[in-house]
Design a protein around this nucleic acid. Structure first.
Length: 401
RNA sequence: GGGGGAGUGCCCGAGUGGUUAAAGGGGACCGGCUGUAAACCGGUUGGCUCCGCCUACGUAGGUUCGAAUCCUACCUCCCCCA
């Protein structure tokens, strides 16, 4: 019966529709349909929100998918509000997780937040970014918190797939986790966000925030989800805790190598999500992977860094030569060198592990495999030699001066 | 408040008195292949003064010739009913 005017029925201008489509490139979903174009029609800079969890400090390529998108918004004159979830980090985002995460110590959160920002500004435009900590508004009076809690129902909170799965499997869901979407949603109220970005795994949280905004009589945000980048294993999402990540601060050679280690099947995905491009059709996997690696290294370490990294890669993995830069290991010249002990010290592995590697023929001296049964050497036999463990670990043994 | 279940090596997960340093898988590592740190194949994967010894199956005791496996207490966690 209501005859209220529905803003969604207004037609956005042609120009805004085109612009919105441009901004939506490479995204998975933009909801509600047409919402972004309407917002653009207002002709004012939009407040684009990204909430980050300061649990793992280092930014990796997975994060950059979303950050690049934010940058695109900034380049169009919009403003990014980066929310450091120092308060919500205590709660732990249940998205895509089957277990709870431990709460972090406040000092740890602070430190993580700092490094995160530093690295985020490798991509974001500092002048068009506001950084806010959500403890600023979430550390609220109990009355206010109850008011917030009153605005959601348990059924709505339990709708999310993660919870459904966990309940079906008889796995625990903490009451704290249940609160997470509410708190994150309140962030959107606090900063009056127009658009919020996140990975596809964030869809529930992002949409839930719209409801919270509505409950507080705020204009509802548009949500945009971005694809999740798989890690170097090619299967699970890139994440620091899974150890399958490529960090934006990884040294050039390592970054190059890690990119080379992604499965060939994931090449198109990486090209698309990280470079917004695609490999040349005729290129064999090896070549397009090299190009990808080189461009990424250039991006994070400056022009020609990629070329240098590739040269280093060829040197070690193709020509099987030693790298240019090798760390020294100062060995004791007083007595016989017990190889397992020396390797243990030089490479930070246990002696037992060193023995195993020696036995497997994995230790080389200046390129020649050392015999499996020879464990003791005179210092003179090793002095100045490059000792190699496996394919990629090198140390130059030097007698102490 | 009541009932039930679980705690094993980096992770997951078998194992209910004796060749168990502990199946299997994942991961990681070494090797082979490959002008990829891809794929594929083989091997290794607690520590050490390494052909032997030490430490390990939530914690502390106990039973036993012998325990991850049995008993007692404790700690932690989970599920269901109310």
């Amino acid at each position: 019966m209501s005859v209220k005017s529905h803003p969604d029925t207004t037609r956005p201008s042609e120009k805004s529709v085109l612009k919105a489509a441009e901004l939506a490139s490479h995204s998975v979903e933009v909801l509600p349909d047409g919402g972004l174009a309407l917002q653009l029609d207002r002709g004012e800079p939009l407040r684009v929100k990204l909430g980050i969890d300061p649990t793992a400090p280092d930014i990796h390529l997975g994060h950059t998918v979303v950050l690049n998108k934010l940058r695109q918004f900034q380049d169009e004159g919009h403003r990014v509000v980066l929310i450091i979830g120092d308060y919500t980090a205590r709660v732990g985002d249940p998205s895509g997780r089957s277990d709870q995460r431990p709460m972090l110590a406040p000092e740890q959160i602070d430190a993580n937040a700092r490094t995160f920002q530093e690295q985020a500004f490798k991509i974001l435009d500092r002048d068009r970014t506001d950084v806010r900590f959500n403890s600023e508004w979430l550390r609220m009076e109990p009355e206010e918190l109850l008011g917030l809690l009153a605005r959601a129902t348990v059924a709505r909170l339990l709708e999310r797939e993660d919870f459904q799965k966990r309940m079906a499997a008889g796995e625990p869901i903490s009451a704290l986790e249940l609160l997470y979407p509410l708190l994150q949603g309140y962030d959107s109220v606090a900063i009056r966000s127009d658009v919020e970005l996140g990975g596809t795994d964030q869809k529930f949280n992002l949409l839930f925030a719209r409801d919270i905004q509505a409950a507080y009589d705020c204009p509802r945000q548009t949500v945009m989800t971005m694809p999740i980048l798989p890690g170097v294993d090619g299967v699970r999402r890139m994440s620091k805790s899974l150890g399958n990540y490529i960090g934006v601060t990884d040294p050039p050679d390592e970054m190059f190598g890690k990119v080379m280690s992604i499965p060939d099947e994931n090449l198109d995905e990486y090209w698309g999500l990280l470079l917004g491009d695609e490999p040349s059709p005729g290129d064999p996997p090896n070549l397009s992977k090299r190009r990808l690696a080189s461009r990424l290294v250039d991006h994070f370490h400056g022009e020609s860094a990629g070329t240098n990294a590739e040269a280093a890669f060829n040197r070690v993995f193709v020509d099987r030569e030693v790298p240019k830069e090798i760390e020294d290991y100062a060995m004791d010249v007083e007595e016989t060198v017990h190889l397992p002990a020396a390797l243990s010290e030089a490479f930070g592995i246990s002696r037992s592990e060193a023995r195993r590697i020696i036995q497997q023929g994995g230790v080389r001296r200046d390129g020649d495999v050392l015999p499996a049964d020879e464990l003791d050497y005179a210092p003179s036999e090793l002095d100045g030699a490059v000792i190699q463990v496996g394919k990629r670990r090198f140390r130059r043994f030097q007698s102490q001066s």
